[in-house]
Amino acid sequence: MKIAVLVSTGRHPVSGATVLSRLEAQAIRLAAGLGEPLGLHAGPEQAVLREALGQGLVRGEHIVVPDGVDPVPALAARLAATKPDLILAGRRGQGGDETGLVPYALAETLDLPLIPDVVAMASDDEAGTLRLDQSLGRGALRRVLVRGPLVVTIHPDAPAPFAYAYGQARRGTIVPLDAAPGTVEGTGPTVEERPYRRRPKLVKGAPTGGSAAERLKAATGEAGTAASGRLLVDPDPDEAAREILAHLRQIGVLAPPTRPSIP
């Protein structure tokens, strides 16, 4: 299986140093479980690609694209030429010039399906198909069976990246490529950049008026839905089990009881 991992120039969230984004490092680890992935980076510098080589990549291709130029056409041209079965990317950018839209733009350009937020991948029994576990948030997963080629973005809940190995970074090869003619133009979608602003968090079901004590009660569960719980002291095990089942059904974790069908 041919796998391409898109490598972007990330920024460390604290130090601001140029680093490989963690999601892409996780993508490399997932890809390494399926085959030997090829790294693909479009940009002026190859330093990030070198770091990716230290974290599990063996080979990387560096498409030289000047600073500030949209990398999508160059990447799309290269991917259209190499035709990988699977294209992996992070689910969002990590600082720098990233928009997090590249996988979507590529999927659109190449006319491929995109599966977002994947945490695990495995080859299925049937040749050419993949079993992907997609994160739906809060630990919920959805398993999808797909057939390539497709674009997949990685969720932070995927396995942690490989440790960086200096010797492997030194050994890996980077192939510098010129961008396909006609692809080095345009600056991509214009985006507006605004500093992050904290927004007030709305508490669901909280009384808009009332005293602070009432709002606190609503927020901490002393009133509202959470207050409707029942306290059983030293209950009979059967009764306790029934209560728990009833509660789980009420909040939708368990399906409603199936009635025995009447013949």
């Binding site: 460390h12 604290v14 680093v19 942690a160 440790a163 960086y164 190995a165 200096y166 010797g167 492997q168």
Partner: peptide, 24 residues
Amino acid sequence: QTLERGALPEKAVGPVTDLRQAGE
């Protein structure tokens, strides 16, 4: 183990990565 194989103990990977990327 560390430089050639990237075989640090699982829990040590985070601190060493942060040392490399954030100097801390």
